[in-house]
Every structure is written in C-alpha cells, then in structure tokens.
Design a protein around this nucleic acid. Sequence first.
DNA 1: CGCACCTTTGAATGAGATCAAAGATGGTGG
DNA 2: CCACCATCTTTGATCTCATTCAAAGGTGCG
Lengths: 251, 251
Amino acid sequence: MLTWGFRLGASRLAERLGRDIVLTEEERSALRSLESQERPYRRGATVIAENDRPRDLFVVLQGWLHSSVWLGNGNRQIMRFHFPADLIGLPLLAFAEYPESVTAVTDVRLASFPRDRLAWLIESHPRLAAALLALCAAERVELADRLASIGRTPARARVASLLCDLFTRLRRAEGRSGDTIQLPLTQEEIGDATGLTAVHVNRMLRRLADDGIIARKGSELRLLDEARLAAEANFIDRSQIRLDWIPKARR
Amino acid sequence: MLTWGFRLGASRLAERLGRDIVLTEEERSALRSLESQERPYRRGATVIAENDRPRDLFVVLQGWLHSSVWLGNGNRQIMRFHFPADLIGLPLLAFAEYPESVTAVTDVRLASFPRDRLAWLIESHPRLAAALLALCAAERVELADRLASIGRTPARARVASLLCDLFTRLRRAEGRSGDTIQLPLTQEEIGDATGLTAVHVNRMLRRLADDGIIARKGSELRLLDEARLAAEANFIDRSQIRLDWIPKARR
DNA sequence: CGCACCTTTGAATGAGATCAAAGATGGTGG
DNA sequence: CCACCATCTTTGATCTCATTCAAAGGTGCG
C-alpha cells in the first residue's frame, strides 16, 4: 500500500527539521517512531475536546485542522490552523487539561504518540529537544503576529493577514508553490479566526476581489497580487525557522 | 552587598521550576549560572529592539517589562508583560531577527546569558530542557488566551481580562497575595495591550470602579470583587504549570 | 513653579455588528 | 438522476460599540 510504505520510509517531522539542521540516522529514526501510530478522522471530527486530559500528541500527516476556544458568551476564537508536518499538543506539556479544542477541518490522517514518549525523546536526543523548543517558540511568535493583526488592524487587513498566513504555511507544508489553493473554510470560520462576523468577512473578501488582489471561484482561491496582499496585511513570513544555534551532532 | 548575595545564593528560574519538580543540586547550579550576569535598565529603556539580532536571553530579576510590535500604520500591540522569574528571548531560538521590542516598564534588573549557553543547558540537563519546553508551551497558551479575549470579547471584558492576568502573575512572581497592586501602566499602554484606545480604556476602568469591582487611587489598583472580574473576563489562571510528566532525576 | 504628560469627560463620527432575506451550492435519499 | 433540504454565500438596511476629536483638569518631575 502506497501510503503505508511512505509512512515507514519517512517522517514529516524529520523532513521539516531536516531543512534546517543535519539529522543523524538515529535522530531520524527517533522522529519516525513518533509517527508509527496512524489514525484517520472525519471532517468536522473533534480530535481533542477542550478540558480533555489527552494522553497523546499528534503529528499531522494529511489534511487541515484548527485549534479553537469557546467563550462563555457562545463565541468561538480559532487560534491556529494546522497543516501537514505540524505538531499538535504542546500545551499538554504545561497543562493537564487541554486548553483548546482541536477539530478536523477536512478529512485528516494523524500520527499519535503518548506524552511520555516525548520525555524519552528529550532525554535521549538533546538536539531534537532543542528543535522542539524552536518549533514551540515559532508558534508563540506566530500567535503574537495574529494578536497584533486582530488587536490593531482593520477588518480588511485581518482577512488579508489570515490569507497570507494560510498560503505561506500551506505552500511549505505541501511543497508546492502555486498561486491557487483550495480553501475548505466557511466564511464563519474565517470570521472566528480573525475576530469578525461572517457577514463582514464576506464583504472584505469581495472588496479584495474587486480590487484585483484575489480571485474566488467556489472554494478555490487564487492570489493575483501577493505583494499587495502582504503589504496590506503587514505580513511577515515566519515559516522559515533558524536552528543554526543547535550544535552539530557528535560523530 | 545584599542583592549580590541574593544573586549568588538562589536562582529565580530554579525557584519557579522547583515548585513543580524536584531539582537536583546540579540542575539548580546550572540554572544559577544563567543568572550570574546582572544588568540594570532604566524605566522606558529598550532592552531588545525589533529586528535586532541579540546574542543574549534574559531572566527578569526585578521590575516589569513588555514585549510589543509596531505596526506599519503607527499602532502598537503589546503582546505580553514580563515579571520577575520570567524568561525573555525564546523567539531567539527560532528566528535570528527578534520579532518584538522588549521595553522596561519600570526600572528593572535583568540577568543575561548567551543563546549558546541554552544549547549547552539542553544538552547537559534534559529535564531542564523539558521544563523550558513547558514554559514555552505555557506562554503559547497564555497568548492564545489574550487572542480570544481581544478577538471575541467586548472592551470591558478585555480590560478585565488584562487586570486578572496582571494580578495573577504578579502575585505569583512576588510571592504576595494581597488585593492591591501598584500599576505602573498608562491607560495608553493598557489600550495597546487590549486593542483599545486610551480614551475607551479610561471609560471601562471608570465603569468597573463605579460597579464596585475595582478601586483606583493614583497608580494603585485594588480588587474589590475578584470573582466577578474573573467571570466577566472569562479568565483562566494559567500561572500553575504541570511538569509531572517529566521523569524523576536519576540518583 | 512651570511644563510635559496623563487622565477624564463630552460630542460627533464611523467601522463593524446585527437583522433580514434572497440566491447558490452540495450532499442525500428516493 | 433528480428533487429536496440544510448549509453557506451574498447583499441591503439599520444599529451600536468603540474611535476620533476636542478641551478641561491632574500629577509629578526637573
């Protein structure tokens, strides 16, 4: 079976980190071991529910997910979308009760591994511990970017910013470089991610399209003027992390 | 000299982590070594400027700071306030150019150590690496809380939420438990942290005071009804992190 | 004491929310 | 294969919360 062969041969996490540091065969193998247990979830399925006490972390193999919180007033805030090669579950290292809901946006395939396995990984592979720390720090910075966008920019820039973020990370996750993506999100979800109502998201998308910056056809979205979109959004590409402070592996 | 003696004897980071796991003498000593180099900064001083390439990370010994970004439109978003025993500089592990400005809110004393020292720490003390990861994950979650507050709650709840956050973390940092703090922030800074204008922050503070939830006198702030404030803010206390997944030290 | 900065309050304005209703789309079962 | 229903998108009209503009007090520091 094709996908199964793929699973044995490579690790998404190793591919991702391998872009920035040279991994030893042993380190690759350790990362691979995190992705041996595969699970499918249906579109809309809840992978982790808020306040659950999950035992496992996940690596995304295929599909989109998001992390969100439900506020007391019935509103939802989507914190972050997750793409292939993303690690889900770091909050579990600080809190027993998971602070967010993790939901499959499309049908997804996830690899799962228990938290204790991470303790083992950190202990036996210090360079990977360092890389994980970098991954976590990067996520922290990306959340800070969203915070600035939502806290201090108008609606149009917020939508633009989200689109830039999705495009940039999706391109990297899928190794493609086109100007067109399939957007499996409802305008309500875009609203919950940008702090806007669905109605207003609709208007902003329309105006971006009217201005020739994007083009929409069904759920397909094309970037016509990426530079302008990025400029309006104050967007900074954080998809390239720097791990050069991590020492070389001992031979 | 009193402060110097203190510096030699204890480590703020060790105190903080020591609440959650039992540290070995060796681990304590390693943490202490991160805090040997002390530096003072004046109120308002820039500790790290956006896009700098700093060599060092910092541990806060005394005083308040904040991390912020300046948007293209001249607006500022304050991401986070830093208190004694907080670690500043994790973004440096993922990006060479620092993504935020770090500014002293009051006169502060910081301990600094080079990034390479962290690589050494991770390599030689896996349990501390795990603890750092937890610290980073917690910060990620706290930023997510702010995101939900700013994205999906009205002005009054945002201000309430910030006050809860400040009180909770400050109490823990200072080991006190009173209902009164000295707030060295201007209403403009509160606005930049909550995504509001200074004028509107003023109105919200006034209404919270009118409703008997807080009391203000100069820069002194007192919580009269902490439960109500927390309820309005949807506040969740994240100051207690769980490190019980980290294995016991080998004897 | 005087100046710079901060707080406070009022009035006018505006960006985004809410309310409402008409299309479009797509998945399901007959 | 088609009809139906649920869900999503789109657009207009109105309302509201927060911003903007303006100006009068406070406060503290040099």
